[in-house]
Write a protein that binds this DNA or RNA. Structure first.
Lengths: 160, 160
DNA sequence: TATTGTTATACTCTATAACTATA
DNA sequence: TATAGTTATAGAGTATAACAATA
């Protein structure tokens, strides 16, 4: 039992990337650096939120619904680069928690508009604060100007 | 049949992120931008390599072995933030392809040193070229100086 | 007792395909 | 015929736990 705990403990400390090793071309790859940073972000996200089931993707969807009430599932899926089935599952998650609801679209009976519930609005406001705090933690080593620059450069990468 | 093809086709085009939607606080989050860029990188990586089974992680491990021949699995796992079992599986993948081999460690009979085979050396050189090309594609919208800046900023995020 | 590596197992995430009900 | 959403299913990927061999 002690052994298992130790193994889990060791992994939990997440001391990525060993100084003793030569990373070769990896050290020159933007893609590798992006992945590293993303892993760090992801690893602390749920912890910062205080709920292991709330992932970055799930938060993103809730935020998107909050900002764009009434949009179709298909639009939300596209906006996040998800399949329709993945969007269904993610929406199910929040609906089961009472944070959002599907309302039949009066103009197209195949589809629903997705809306926050009253509970969802409260929840989202709470999460926004925690996520913003977490993001500040993630970028705590950067000056405000550097953070802005990073945002612009990443934006350029994503622009088509 | 036509329907299915269309669905897959649509997703393959990966037109992430809809201009019509308001991304709210997501637009201000470094973590969200990192994830977006990573998704773009990952989505094109295997395609650029021309082999759907070679993922960024698998390439990273091979590169690490190439630069650090003879290291233990546990060291490679730590260097990539993997569990021991995940490292085992990843090494199995390359070993089955004849690209690397486990050699018994003469000093510690519990462990192996991991080495490239002759085939692995050739393979790695080939992959390095393709990966570097892919990374250039990923950052094609950035000036050389911007690319360098991005690297430094990401480095700061990852530094402890 | 602790560590290296393997295996068994389970869980998360996401995709494609098939299905339904509409359009 | 095409589309919105659901469900069934499968495949990556990765983790923990248990185990064997060795330290």
């Amino acid at each position: 039992m002690a052994t298992r705990t130790k193994q889990a403990e060791k992994r939990a400390s997440l001391k990525l990337f060993d100084q003793a090793l030569d990373y070769g071309v990896l050290a020159r790859l933007t893609g590798f650096a992006l992945r590293r940073a993303s892993v760090i972000d992801f690893a602390r996200f749920s912890e910062a939120i205080g709920d292991a089931t709330i992932t970055p993707l799930r938060f993103s969807l809730l935020e998107l619904v909050g900002q764009n009430p009434g949009f179709q599932q298909v639009q939300l899926a596209d906006a996040l680069g998800l399949s329709r089935s993945a969007a269904t599952v993610t929406i199910d998650y929040w609906e089961q928690r009472g944070s959002l609801e599907r309302r039949p679209d009066p103009n197209d009976r195949r589809s629903y508009g997705i809306y926050l519930t009253r509970e969802g609005e409260t929840q989202l406001k709470r999460l926004e604060q925690l996520v913003i705090e977490h993001d500040r933690w993630l970028t705590r080593k950067l000056e405000p100007a550097e953070r802005a620059t990073l945002g612009e450069l990443l934006e350029k990468i994503c622009a088509r």
